[in-house]
């Protein structure tokens, strides 16, 4: 992984030095292990802060909307798809960006690792698909594949779909994954079981909106939850309001979500909120053969009006 970091630093330095970009957005070490932070480097002398490992989960596309300067941005497969979505949705122009593509082998889920070791973690290192966790008087080696974020474990677009430069050879894409096992399980439930499932799912939600804030798709000047004329959603943690928020957020992501997992990673109480967005992702795949963020030329299916759209639901 350190050669990735070296490569990123090298490119960042070159881009800043020759004025190709005004700023590079990448990752730096976080104050705690397993959570790297976004890093905005404007000075070529400071590129050494940039790092790369399996804790770079944050979707950097989230920092792009409405930027005016020229930006070099580090992009995993999912980040690149969100960058595509941003360009299609006029949040930034292609010309403003220098995309540093990073073939990705998945990001680890800090919660899974913490659960696996059960002790305070002081440092983490990784090599050859193994994660070595050390703490006060212990060292434990974990298999990275087993510690992946849920979305990374089923990811089929690990390589960037758009870039100006890729820092390494493409990684092999996963093919034998069932992307929608969890959605299918919910679909198979009878209405009562499904009701209970969602009730339990959202039980812990404290309406902090961290999922919304982490999501690159949520860039509206005013979010519907903050509108007062009319007020769609109450401000309390009333169950109905909580559900309304989650349902509408999912609708807003329909046909646009790249399953980057930012929402789940951000949730402080560990709600698997991807269940909502993935149902709609599955529907878009089945109805329109659509995957978000794969092309600069096509708008998402729910943004386009075509007389020949499937209408089997109308009878």
């Amino acid at each position: 992984m350190s050669e990735y970091a070296e490569k990123i630093r090298g490119i960042a330095k070159k881009l800043l030095d020759d004025g190709t970009v005004d700023m590079v957005i990448g990752f730096r070490k976080g104050t705690m292990p397993l959570i790297n932070e976004p890093c905005f480097v404007k000075d070529a002398a400071k590129v050494d802060a940039l790092v790369w490992d399996s804790s770079c989960g944050v979707n950097l596309a989230n920092y792009l909307p409405k930027r005016k300067e020229k930006i070099g941005v580090v992009a995993k497969g999912c980040d690149s798809r969100n960058i595509v979505t941003h360009i299609v949705e006029n949040q930034i122009t292609r010309e403003q960006l220098y995309i540093i593509g990073v073939p990705c082998t998945g990001m680890v889920d800090r919660r899974k690792i913490r659960l696996a070791v059960g002790k305070e973690i002081l440092s983490v290192s990784e090599a050859d698909g193994k994660i070595t966790v050390t703490g006060d008087g212990y060292e434990e080696v974990l298999d990275k594949q087993e510690m992946l974020q849920d979305n990374c474990a089923i990811c089929i677009h690990r390589n960037p779909v758009i870039s100006d430069e890729v820092i390494a050879d493409p990684v092999e894409e996963q093919t034998d994954v069932d992307r929608y096992a969890d959605v299918k399980a919910v679909e198979a439930m009878d209405p009562e079981a499904r009701w209970n499932h969602f009730e339990q799912l959202l039980d812990g939600c404290i309406r902090c909106y961290a999922c919304r804030n982490a999501c690159p798709l949520c860039y509206c000047p005013t979010c519907f939850v903050d509108e007062s004329q009319p007020q769609w959603v109450g401000k309390s943690v009333d169950k109905t309001d909580t559900r309304t928020f989650h349902f509408l957020r999912a609708y807003h992501c329909a046909g646009r979500c790249t399953d980057c997992g930012a929402c789940e990673r951000a949730c402080p109480v560990g709600i698997p909120v991807r269940q909502f967005t993935k149902k709609l992702e599955k529907d878009c795949k089945e109805l329109f053969d659509w995957e978000a963020g794969m092309s600069l030329d096509v708008r998402p299916p729910l943004d386009t009006y075509r007389p020949e759209d499937p209408d089997e639901f109308i009878k």
């Binding site: 949705e89 006029n90 000047p221 386009t304 009006y305």
Partner: peptide, 21 residues
Amino acid sequence: PANCSECGVCVSLCPYSAPSF
């Protein structure tokens, strides 16, 4: 305009081409 995010859904969607930037 203050609330518009410039995402272009309306421009793309309208069958009558009424919205534009």
